[in-house]
């Protein structure tokens, strides 16, 4: 039982990372109907920004740690979206209206280009951040097993839930969110209602990148080790999460993220750590076979 609770906590924090990235996939898919395969790389760049800022400040111990954390968080949330914006502007906008295959190839191209750029600039070696936030609560004990909820995990959950609530509010309540939903349903008509469609799409990429950058920072704090290649696997798993939840659906992406995190945590807890990726991707296969629209996705209704 204690072991189960511990894996549940681990799974939820892991799922938070996937959920935050999956939102980026699902929003972009919703608005322009393409899979932004370079989104995982944006996550990786977010992790690097956070690392550079944290190390640049030179604070890894002492009472100033919260300041360093906030600086890293704000910094990466401001810098990483520039990549998201540039990605859309350079790689996707010129191809708008071209066949789907063309944008897919560009997306894959960008997902090869970005890690290579980071590799050139930062080197291929792994980068480490000393654990900055240690300790936590012991919430349960039994059979010699102590269930801990670390401060870091609390921080991750609070951050994730806050961001998810904030973004849901933006989509549901603000003019920008309405514009995004309008573009999603009928881009031409949105333009005729005076909505700047190009700008709305660019802002969607910016928002997705903001969330991915936070996920990057969480990843950095949680594992303390990053390199230029982390974007691939995490990105693919977040994509799986988006498909599992129903691509195009915002709550679906969050749900899918948490589910994939839990599946991974429980699989590594009860079966083998080596095969946790197999477990996650088997889910992708099963979902695609039995429920292609995902858990919360709506079936594609033919436009009249």
């Amino acid at each position: 039982m204690e072991y189960f609770v511990q894996q549940l906590i681990n799974g939820l924090t892991l799922g938070a990372v996937y959920g935050l990235i999956a939102i980026g996939y699902t929003m972009v898919y919703g608005i322009i109907g393409m899979i932004n395969f370079a989104h995982g790389e944006i996550f990786m760049i977010g992790a690097f920004h956070a690392l550079i800022i944290a190390l640049g400040l030179g604070i890894t111990t002492g009472t100033w740690i919260p300041v360093a954390l906030v600086a890293a968080l704000v910094g990466t949330m401001l810098l990483t979206p520039i990549y998201g914006w540039a990605l859309e502007r350079v790689a996707y906008r010129p191809l708008r209206g071209s066949p789907r295959l063309a944008t897919l190839i560009t997306a894959i191209g960008m997902s090869i280009y970005l890690p290579n750029q980071v590799q050139l600039l930062q080197g291929a070696r792994i980068k480490t951040l000393p654990p900055v936030l240690q300790g936590g609560f012991e919430i349960m004990e039994g059979g010699g097993f102590v269930v801990t909820l670390s401060y870091l995990q609390i921080l991750i959950m609070v951050l994730t839930v806050t961001l998810m609530v904030a973004f849901t509010l933006i989509i549901e309540k603000t003019a920008l969110g309405r514009a995004q939903r309008a573009c999603e349903q009928d881009r031409t008509m949105a333009a005729l209602s005076g909505i700047n469609v190009d700008r709305t799409i660019a802002l969607t990429f910016v928002m997705g990148a903001t969330l991915a950058s936070v996920a990057g920072m969480i990843f950095l704090l949680r594992y303390g080790v990053i390199d230029f290649f982390i974007g691939f696997l995490v990105g693919i798993k977040a994509f799986t999460a988006a498909v599992l939840g129903g691509i195009g659906s915002l709550p679906g992406a969050m749900l899918g993220g948490f589910l994939i995190g839990l599946i991974e945590a429980f699989w590594s807890g009860y079966f083998t750590v080596e095969y946790k990726d197999v477990a996650a991707f088997s889910i992708l296969v099963l979902v695609l076979i039995f429920r292609p629209t995902g858990l919360l996705g709506k079936p594609d209704i033919e436009k009249v």
């Binding site: 904030a166 933006i170 603000t174 003019a175 939903r181 309008a182 209602s193 005076g194 909505i195």
Partner: peptide
């Protein structure tokens, strides 16, 4: 309301302030 997007966007400082 979507049709009144521009006026709202201007007034909201592109939505983020509006929040």
């Amino acid at each position: 309301i979507v049709a009144q997007h521009n006026r709202l966007m201007r007034a909201s400082g592109f939505s983020f302030l509006g929040l």
